[in-house]
Structures are given as C-alpha cells and as structure tokens.
Design a protein around this nucleic acid. Structure first.
Lengths: 135, 135
DNA sequence: CATAATGATACTGATATGGTATCTTTACGA
DNA sequence: TCGTAAAGATACCATATCAGTATCATTATG
C-alpha cells in the first residue's frame, strides 16, 4: 500500500527544488537535470500543479514555473488529493457490495478513526515544514 | 487507497460468521449462502486461513472449517498481513528510486509515524472485539 | 518569424486485484 | 467398498490503476 504515489512524490520533490532554488522561474529542463526524473511524466505533474494553482506557468522562450502559493501553505494532503483524489483508507463507500453485517460497520468505524488521524496529519504537513526540518 | 482488500474483507466476514454460527463445523456452502460472496474466491480465502492456522479444515463428506484460534486472538492486522503482506503506508523501501533529498527522508519519517499508529491499531483489533462492539 | 518553452491529449506496458475453472485428494456413509 | 460431497492445489483470465511515452498544438521571446 502506498499513501503517496509516484506523481505526488515527484510533485513534492519538484516543489521543494523550486523553493530551494531561489530563482525567479524554473524550467522543466532544470528540474529534470536536478531531480533525475523522467521528463514527460514530470511535465504532466507540473501542468497539473499549474491547473490547481500551486504553480504558475509561463509559456514561450525562457518560460517555466513559479510558485503560486507560499510553501507554508502547500500541504502534502492537498497534493495527494490533487494527484490521487480524496484521501481514504477504505473505498467501501463507493462499492456496491456493502456488507450488511453489523461487524462491517464496526470495522468501518474503526478504520475511519485511523483515516481521520492520517488525513489531519497530512493536512498539517507543508512543503515548508519538510524543508525546515530537513535542514 | 484501501487498507483492506477484498480477500481480507471476506476473511473477516467469514470468520465472524463462523463465530456467530456456534456450530461444530461450517462448510463453504453454508458460508456462501449466508454471506453471498463468490464461492471459488471464498474457498481460496478459507484455504489460506487454514494454511495459516486461523482455521482448521476437514475434508470429505460433512467436511468444512472450524476455528483454530480463539476469536480474541485473531487480529485484523494479522489477517491483513496474511492476504496483503506486511502493513505499510509506503513502499519506498523496496523501490530502487530512492530519493536522495533530505526532504524525502523527512517525509518518510512523518509517514512512518502514521504507519506505526495504524499498525498498532490494527494489531489490537480482534474478530471478537468486532462482534462484541457490534452487539 | 524561428525557436524554446508549456498545454493538451492519446497511447502503451506492467502490476495488482478480483474472480473463474478444473482437476486432485480425502473421508463419510449407504 | 465405492459413490459422492466435501476441501486442496493450481493455472488461468479480466479489469483497473499506476508509471511512463509520444505527439501535436500553442504561446511568447529575441
């Protein structure tokens, strides 16, 4: 099981790189070189971050990406949502096969508790705090 | 994301059913009728529970399955492990692509905390407690 | 206006999950 | 003792998701 998939992970790393670079604008080219990740995949990730207002993109020559949100306000939980949809530890809600047993409801409740805990932790963890602690 | 996959879920429901049935021995036939799940899949699940010592199987006419472990000692965490392998919220450890950034390590540590919490909760939740609370 | 950048989108391959099919083995009971 | 009803073992298939590629359109700079 993976709470964080590859594209979310790339997004996090790219954002950290951009923050640390202290540049006006960062191109995909530079990110690929600096982070050693597959270019087309990273491009998709960055495009998505642009659409969602985390980054701002500039087209054309000398174009690239700029942070559109302060790093203290970019939460890992938010990034996971962008790339993986709402955070949840159980998909039961969507499945037709709903267990009619009492037991299932109890289990669901128990997992809900873990889920809430996990979500609240992820939603209070920002890009900035990752960088700060790492220093 | 799903902490609990279908086969684990079936296992939990089957075990609950067996406990509640209060019978000497329960056949797949009865379980299929009682729980409305696909027979061949359920059989695989039960076979696995037998191999792992959670159930004891009896072959031949009037055969079936019997609990081999007390319901207070059957933990959801254990069942997840049987059907899905070690519980983890990140697979990083196995992937070649290890992020050399400090950031990644910090993130990993943060997720480790959530992981430990989740595991400890799952390992203290038993079939018996599911049934008890449900009453 | 050529070029270097991003935007958009369709496609591919690998893996995991959920489920089926089939054949073998075992033991009860008429 | 032998037919049958049970579980054991195993190989197979369908689908979804994840990871990644390829390609063409658009835009802005110099």
């Amino acid at each position: 099981m993976n709470l964080i998939t590859r594209n979310t992970d790339y997004a996090i790393r790219a954002l950290c790189y951009i923050v640390k670079s202290n540049k006006d604008i960062v191109s995909v080219k530079e990110l690929v070189e600096g982070l050693k990740m597959p270019r087309p995949f990273l491009r998709k990730v960055l495009q998505e971050l642009n659409k969602k207002g985390i980054l701002r993109s500039y087209k054309g020559k000398n174009g690239g990406f700029v942070l559109a949100t302060r790093p203290e306000k970019i939460y890992i939980g938010k990034l996971i949502e962008i790339f993986q949809g709402p955070i949840k530890l159980q998909e039961h809600t969507f499945k037709k096969k709903i267990c009619p047993e009492i037991k299932s409801c109890v289990l669901k409740k128990k997992i809900d508790v873990m889920e809430k805990y996990t979500i609240s932790r992820l939603n209070s963890l920002s890009i900035a705090s990752l960088l700060k602690t790492g220093k």
